[in-house]
C-alpha cells in the first residue's frame, strides 16, 4: 500500500492534475475564441497590470476593506502552494535536490494553512452573506484541502500510527492533485484568465482600472 501510494499513485495523480489542467485551460480558451467579444479585446499590458495588483497583498481597495481576510487569504494560499513544493521530505521521496524549507518554517506554514482553513470555515458558517452561498461541497472542498496538511502535521509528530497517517497524508495529497482541475480549486488556474479579461474590459475598452 505505502509503496503504491508513494510511487505510482502520486505519478498518476500528478499526470491527471497536469493533463486535467491543460484540458481545462484549452477548453476555456477554445470557447473564448467562439465568444466573439472576448479575444479581440485582450491585451497583455492591461492584464499584467491588473494581475500584478491582485497578487500584491493589500494592492486593491477590496483587500484593504477586509484586512484580516486579506492577511489570512494571502498566507493561506502562499503556504498552501509552497509548503508541499519546498518540503525536504517531499524532495527526498522523489529523489531530487532543490532548495527547501527549514523544518520549523515548514511547520509554521503548515499551521497557517490549517488555521486559515479554520478561519474560512467559521466564515462560511457564521457570516450570513457567505453562508448563503455555502454548499456542502464548499465545506468538503475546504476539508479536503486541509486534509494533507493536517495529516502531514500528525505524521511529523508521529501522533497516531505513523504508517497509517503518512499513507493517509499521501492519499489526501493525491486526491488534492486530482481534484484541482475538476472542482472549484480550478480558480487557481482560471484566476489569471478571468482577471485578465476583466482588466482588459476595464482598461482597454473602458479606459479605467479594476482594482
Amino acid at each position: 500500500m505505502y509503496e503504491f501510494v508513494s510511487g505510482p499513485l502520486f505519478w498518476i495523480s500528478l499526470a491527471i492534475c497536469v493533463a486535467g489542467s491543460i484540458y481545462k485551460l484549452v477548453t476555456v480558451i477554445k470557447l473564448a475564441r467562439k465568444d466573439k467579444v472576448v479575444l479581440p479585446y485582450m491585451r497583455l499590458s492591461y492584464s499584467m497590470k491588473s494581475i500584478g495588483r491582485w497578487i500584491t497583498p493589500f494592492g486593491t481597495r477590496s483587500m484593504r476593506l477586509t484586512p484580516i481576510f486579506t492577511a489570512v487569504a494571502f498566507s493561506f494560499h502562499i503556504c498552501l502552494l509552497f509548503t508541499p513544493l519546498l518540503l525536504l521530505a517531499h524532495h527526498e521521496l522523489l529523489g531530487i535536490r532543490l532548495i527547501h524549507l527549514p523544518d520549523p518554517v515548514a511547520h509554521v506554514m503548515t499551521a497557517i494553512v490549517i488555521i486559515g482553513g479554520l478561519f474560512f470555515l467559521q466564515r462560511r458558517l457564521l457570516v450570513p452573506y457567505v453562508n448563503n452561498v455555502t454548499y456542502f461541497s464548499d465545506i468538503l472542498l475546504l476539508l479536503l484541502v486541509m486534509a494533507p496538511f493536517v495529516t502531514g502535521f500528525l505524521a511529523y509528530y508521529q501522533w497516531f500510527d505513523y504508517r497509517t497517517v503518512i499513507t493517509l497524508h499521501m492519499i489526501f495529497g493525491c486526491v488534492m492533485l486530482v481534484i484541482i482541475p475538476f472542482t472549484r480549486i480550478v480558480h487557481m488556474l482560471f484566476f489569471a484568465l478571468t482577471r485578465a479579461y476583466m482588466a482588459c474590459e476595464f482598461g482597454y475598452v473602458r479606459n479605467s482600472q479594476d482594482w
Partner: peptide
C-alpha cells in the same frame, strides 16, 4: 468562455 469560467471559478 465567460459563463463557463465564471461558474467554475466563483469560490463562494
Amino acid at each position: 468562455a465567460r459563463m463557463t469560467a465564471y461558474l467554475q471559478t466563483c469560490v463562494h
